[in-house]
Simulated assay, not measured.
Amino acid sequence: MRHNVNSDSRNESEESGWKNSRILIVEDDAHISDIIAAGLQREGYRCTQAYSGSEAMLQLEQSTYELLVLDLMLPGLSGEALMGRLRGELSSSVPVIVLSARDQLDHKLELFGLGADDYVTKPFELAELLARVHAQLKRARPDREAETESYRHRELVLDNRTYQATVKGEPLTLTRQEYRILELLLKHPSRVFTKQDLYTLAWDEPYMGEDKTITVHISNIRNKIKAHCEQNYIDTVWGIGFRLSRTDS
């Protein structure tokens, strides 16, 4: 693993008002965990370290965190199982950055389907991980004072004060990107978004041409809505992209 402990990353967390964000590092390799913690602490973040999935679950049940850095190969409860319980029984939308030595596209898409917000392949530069942490926290708490407090389409409501989505009054457990995609569709109900549009706007990153990423997220949103409502809320515009549904079908 390439560790760039003396990174050139600036103290952006302090400058942006996130100096005290609490981050849970779930990594069974104590050496790697300590290096990550040291880098994050230099940026002003408060870190808690867990060395197994079971220990991490206890921490998540007892405390609140703004972000998780999650290794997959953990003793006992795996990273995938932990993320499933996080999004399921804990109904948490806290951002999760996954660490894994596997870099296959299908594996990444599977993790996004489970609720991961970002993915860093081992070995990695510490500066890159710090930048991704900052980006996730920025997306999680953007400055939206001038924006509308809520958006509604039929029985789907997004509340920008609490960053919660409901359909028929039932809460939807969405990842950050899923929430952002729905927000874009509701803010611009007459616009057709290409996959490139959605990726660029929801991830704040250049589009890398991975069409399946957007398709998986749209499918996840539809399934979560369908669990409470049979109406279709997202239309596929074949050959172009997606838009907010205009009908009740």
Rank of each mutant, 00 (worst) to 15 (best):
D118C: 07
F112D: 00
L126W: 11
E66V: 06
Q62Y: 06
D106N: 08
V96W: 01
E110F: 12
V96T: 04
L72Y: 05
N160W: 07
T148V: 14
T162L: 10
Y119A: 06
L109P: 01
G169N: 03
H107F: 15
G84N: 11
L129V: 00
L158V: 07
V157K: 13
E170S: 07
P95D: 02
T173P: 03
L86F: 03
M83P: 00
Q104V: 07
S91E: 15
E147P: 03
R87I: 01
Q59K: 10
P95R: 01
E89P: 04
T162M: 10
E128F: 12
V94C: 02
Y151E: 11
L60E: 01
K168V: 09
S63L: 12
E147M: 12
R154S: 09
Q164M: 14
F112W: 04
S92T: 00
L158P: 04
L109V: 13
L158M: 05
E89Q: 14
S91N: 05
G88H: 02
L109H: 08
R132E: 07
F112C: 03
D143M: 06
T166C: 09
L114A: 05
R141V: 10
E145N: 08
V94D: 00
R154A: 09
S150V: 08
L158F: 08
A135W: 12
L105Q: 13
A135S: 07
P123W: 06
R102I: 14
T64A: 11
L74S: 05
H153R: 05
R154T: 06
A165G: 09
L156C: 11
I97Q: 00
L72P: 06
E155V: 09
R144M: 12
T121A: 14
K122L: 05
L82W: 02
V133L: 02
Y163H: 14
L156M: 12
S100V: 01
P95C: 03
H107I: 15
Y119S: 03
L77V: 09
L82M: 15
D103F: 10
L109D: 09
L129N: 01
P142N: 08
L86M: 13
S150R: 15
V98Y: 00
L90P: 01
E80F: 06
A165Q: 11
E170G: 03
L172R: 00
R85F: 02
L109T: 10
L105I: 11
R139H: 15
L129I: 02
L77E: 07
V98W: 00
V157G: 06
H134S: 10
T162S: 15
E170C: 09
L90Q: 10
D106G: 04
L130W: 03
E149Q: 09
V98I: 15
S100E: 03
L72N: 08
K138F: 03
N160F: 14
S100M: 06
Y163A: 12
F112H: 05
R102A: 11
V69W: 08
Y163V: 14
V96I: 14
Y163C: 12
A146W: 08
E145L: 08
P75S: 12
A127K: 11
L58F: 06
P95H: 02
